[in-house]
């Protein structure tokens, strides 16, 4: 059980600044997801918490204790790597038991803890196999098992599901969530997939080029993005951005989510219909405005689908409009 605190943490590789100062307070048992596009510094941030990367400035605290200069083995953490990083020459059992053996846990207890974890992760039939004799999903579970048998204070996950196929990813996502609930271990989870972030997180940190643009509960972040980047990154299909000047505004752009725009004969703006995607329960209509901006409208499947090339009006209500200034910050 542990709390985790990052205080203005920065990281530079030589002269390149990669993390520009991230602060967050993680409560005991909280599931935090760090989400952002590729190269924004998610892994670097996680590796600083793990002790695999030095902290250039700022502080990392686990349970109130400053750990900047503490070696990874003394931080009481466990990590699941993107490529799983299993020990190729050891059986599944030995992979999971490795940390316990080093900690000199008595043999019977090791066997018991590995058995329990294997049962939880449905790995019992594979305990004597080598990692190369397992499927991707099974390897992923071994990596999870290796983390949970040690009962660490903090779990760190670096895109643990990105090597799995879509179906398995959904299944493992649910399993990870259930597992974390059951074990109640403070967790930091890195992903570039915003759906994973929305479904797993108690709170999420949306990273943009080394800066934490917004930290908050998924639905709060979705409903109230603080920056244009967050509004565009969280939500699928993404928020539509329209030049504010086109709709009687000042400088900057406005953002409206696809579900908040309705098609009508007249509207605040007109646009030409492109192709439509009927997904069953809903339909996504893609349009193009006069100045070339791409607009997506999400409408109920019961509504008529407009024909390609037609000109339709777009309308929305004022409370659903998010205004951003020229620098991308939300105006309230």
């Amino acid at each position: 059980m542990a709390t985790l605190k990052l205080d203005n943490v920065k990281k530079s590789f030589g002269k390149t600044d990669v993390i520009h100062g991230v602060s967050v307070d993680v409560e005991d048992g909280e599931f935090i997801v760090i989400v952002g596009p590729s190269g924004c510094g998610k892994s670097t941030l996680l590796r600083m918490v793990a002790g695999l990367e030095t902290v250039t400035s700022g502080e990392v605290r686990i349970n109130g204790k400053r750990v900047n200069d503490v070696e990874p083995m003394d931080r009481d953490i466990a990590m699941v790597f993107q490529n799983y990083a299993l020990y190729p020459h050891m059986s599944v059992f030995d992979n999971m038991a490795y940390g316990l053996k080093i900690a000199k846990v008595p043999k019977p207890e090791i066997a018991e803890r590995v058995q329990t974890a294997a049962k939880l992760l449905q790995l019992e039939p594979y305990l004597q196999r080598k990692p190369r004799e397992l499927s991707g999903g099974q390897r992923q579970r071994v990596a999870m098992g290796r983390a949970i048998v040690r009962k660490p204070a903090v779990f760190l996950f670096d895109e643990p599901l990105s090597n799995l196929d879509a179906k398995l990813r959904v299944q493992m996502r649910l399993e990870i969530k259930a597992l974390q609930r059951e074990l109640g271990v403070t967790s930091l989870y890195v992903t570039h997939d915003q759906v994973e972030a929305m479904t797993l997180a108690d709170r999420m940190i949306v990273m943009n080029a080394g800066v934490a643009d917004q930290i908050g509960a998924p639905l709060d972040v979705y409903a109230n993005p603080e920056t244009e980047f967050v509004a565009g990154f969280i939500g699928s299909p993404p928020t539509n951005f329209i030049d504010a000047a086109l709709v009687g505004g000042q400088s900057g752009r406005i953002g409206v989510r696809p579900e908040h725009i309705a098609l009508s004969d007249t509207g605040l703006l007109t646009a030409t219909v492109g192709y439509s995607e009927a997904l069953g329960a809903e339909t996504l209509v893609h349009l193009r405005t006069g100045d070339g901006a791409q607009i997506t409208v999400r409408q109920d499947a019961a509504l008529p689908i407009p024909g390609e090339g037609e000109t339709r009006g777009l309308s929305w209500t004022d409370e659903n409009v998010m205004r951003f200034d020229a620098s991308g910050l939300r105006q309230h």
Partner: peptide
Amino acid sequence: IPKSVVEAAAIDGARFWT
């Protein structure tokens, strides 16, 4: 030898010689 395997061992508590 994949770097992450050695890092995983470090996180598992193994010091340099181990």
